[in-house]
Design a protein around this nucleic acid. Structure first.
Lengths: 169, 169
DNA sequence: CAATATTGTTTTGCTATCAAAGTAATATTG
DNA sequence: CAATATTACTTTGATAGCAAAACAATATTG
């Protein structure tokens, strides 16, 4: 039964990823900027200090190679500026241009309005539960490689516990 | 606070998507097949009857154009066969080759073992809760365009309800 | 039955992603 | 201080994904 659940998780994830992609494509059509590009601008705007390319990549969870391409496009549109670091000239500091700030101010939400609306209507406890669930998934995926061994002794049993006391929520 | 939660959802989703991408890249390295390709093979294997390209695309939640490229690669590796439909020659029927079936039998799981292991160790109620949360997200994203109007009257209030009775779980 | 519409797939042009290799600048060490 | 290692970024070559246009075959209709 557990294997089945995992498969269902995968399917749900694929549907979500698909939806996010669709929205990104739609944004590209209407705004001329993709989700990744807007997210990049937003992260720059929120930063307390100018970010280097590598720092930025880490914050938005992308490899540097991927970010380079995104910056290329943002720079081509003059929304972002690349400057070599003064102290360390290997670094490339990224700053928002005024145009970038402007575009960002007008940018639509990064998740479909469908979702944003529906989600915002949920009672708070439910929002929290959903958020905590996907954060859980994210953690489990990024989890450190298993502490080796110990794999046979505590093999996954098909536990059928009862829910925890309410305090756990 | 709600807007904030939405942003956190987005961030968690991006981390998950990133992890899935990384795993797909790893699969490509080790097995020579990406997640999308394996998932395609699996869907073919599970089907009760030969699928047309369009039918397949729908089942794996992709556009036809995207699927065409995936099929190109699978066909190049002789894992899959394209045949024109006999009754309706517009259709392209996809069938697994023996090699395809073989490869599929040896294929590793489509989500990182980290995740699969961690998830399978969770108590059942927790697995269900997580699954239901992401299915919820998927639904909200695919939800039909809003029934128009009514947008000001039932604007999203920042409700602070208490959790529901346990029966709701 | 010929013109038009619909349906099914592929093609094209773009963005996003990754890994790995390449380049340039800084840091370390013998 | 010169050789080597490390760090920061870009380039390259794949795959995946979309929309829109092209193409090909079937269905409909006047």
């Amino acid at each position: 039964m557990t294997a089945n659940q995992t498969r269902e998780v995968l399917i749900a994830l694929r549907r979500i990823i698909h939806a996010v992609d669709l929205h990104s494509a739609a944004l590209t059509q209407t705004v001329g900027l993709s989700t990744a590009q807007i997210f990049t601008l937003q992260t720059l705007a929120d930063a307390e200090h100018p970010l280097s390319a590598g720092e930025l990549a880490m914050r938005i969870d992308l490899t540097q190679g991927t970010l380079t391409a995104i910056l290329d496009r943002l720079e081509r549109k003059s929304l972002v500026l690349r400057t070599r670091g003064q102290d360390d000239r290997r670094k490339v500091l990224i700053t928002l241009t005024d145009a970038g700030r402007q575009v960002l101010a007008d940018a639509p939400p990064l998740l479909q309005q469908n979702f944003t609306r529906a989600f915002s209507r949920l009672p708070n406890w439910e929002q929290s539960q959903i958020l905590s669930s996907i954060q859980r998934i994210a953690e489990m995926m990024h989890a450190p490689p298993p502490p080796e061994a110990a794999s046979l002794l505590d093999a996954p049993r098909d536990r059928t516990d009862t829910p925890p006391p309410l305090e756990a929520l």
